[in-house]
């Protein structure tokens, strides 16, 4: 039984489902998948909500498929590196095993949520960075670019999931990508924050617009010491779907 798909379908049909179905129970199902708890709580929860469940709207499917494509890329990239790279990960290997585990989970989660509507995995390629699996520093740069792009991509899609339960899931993935980005940056001995639009070896497009300081008001005016560096580091900026697709196009994602 596919719990995630079920809840997602129910909620997209029955607007009141989130209210009827306790958030905590839902989280619990998703997190633990405990058979015992499910056996008791699930029928009770389902009894009070719609029996009918349809697929998501086309727009939501588009968002989830866009996310899925990025997750395919990340998952494939780390899997390949962990299996085939000629450099030695050394003490950093557990970090990338952990990141890969999350990306693989995201792929599965999104595929499951989309069901038959899930986009197939594209043929991916990395020849835009010929030494990415032979030079650890290049690998780290591309990893950072993927993670920071992922953060910006999910952020850009959030408004399209306005008020939907899928927004919560997307935000939960978004934060994990940000944790990954911070860690990869640390492995490069860089800052965990994105400073202005500094790309630090990654393609400039990954950080275009990160120099923004205006959040309704120019935040630099709100306090002493609120410099360009402080303010741009304190707020991550979104990217449009088009901008993200342009960044990942060289890797075979369309």
């Amino acid at each position: 039984m596919n719990i995630f798909q079920l809840f997602s379908d129910i909620e997209s049909v029955d607007a009141d489902a989130p209210e009827k179905l306790s958030f905590y129970s839902r989280r619990f199902f998703l997190r633990k998948g405990s058979k015992a708890a499910t056996a008791v709580a699930l029928p009770m929860a389902l009894a009070s909500i719609s029996q009918e469940a349809f697929a998501q709207s086309t727009e939501v499917q588009e968002v989830l498929n866009f996310a899925l494509k990025l997750e395919y890329l990340e998952e494939d990239f780390y899997k390949k590196a962990l299996a085939e790279a000629t450099f030695d990960f050394g003490a950093d290997r557990p970090v990338f095993e952990q990141i890969h585990k999350h990306e693989a989970s995201h792929v599965k989660l999104l595929q499951t949520a989309l069901g038959a509507a899930a986009a197939p995995k594209p043929a991916l390629k990395y020849d835009a960075f010929p030494d990415v699996f032979t030079n650890y520093q290049t690998f780290l740069i591309v990893a950072q670019a993927f993670e920071d792009t992922g953060v910006r991509a999910y952020k850009g899609q959030a408004p399209k999931l306005y008020k939907l339960p899928e927004l919560t899931t997307a935000l939960q993935i978004h934060a994990v990508e940000a944790r990954h980005a911070a860690e990869v940056r640390r492995l490069r001995e860089g800052r965990v924050w994105v400073t202005k639009n500094e790309s630090d070896g990654a393609p400039a497009a990954v950080y275009a617009g990160e120099e923004n300081t205006v959040q309704k008001v120019d935040v630099r005016t709100l306090g002493p010491g609120f410099s360009d560096i402080v303010v741009t580091e304190a707020f991550d900026e979104p990217l449009t779907k088009e901008a993200v697709l342009e960044i990942v196009k060289p890797f075979g994602v369309a």
Binding site: A158, Y162, A175, R186, V192, W193, K216, E233
Partner: peptide, 17 residues
């Protein structure tokens, strides 16, 4: 919604650090 998205990923970076 957009603003909280811009902030939450920075909090996640802090947590990771």
């Amino acid at each position: 919604l957009a603003l909280s998205g811009k902030i939450v990923s920075v909090e996640a970076r802090h947590a990771a650090l």
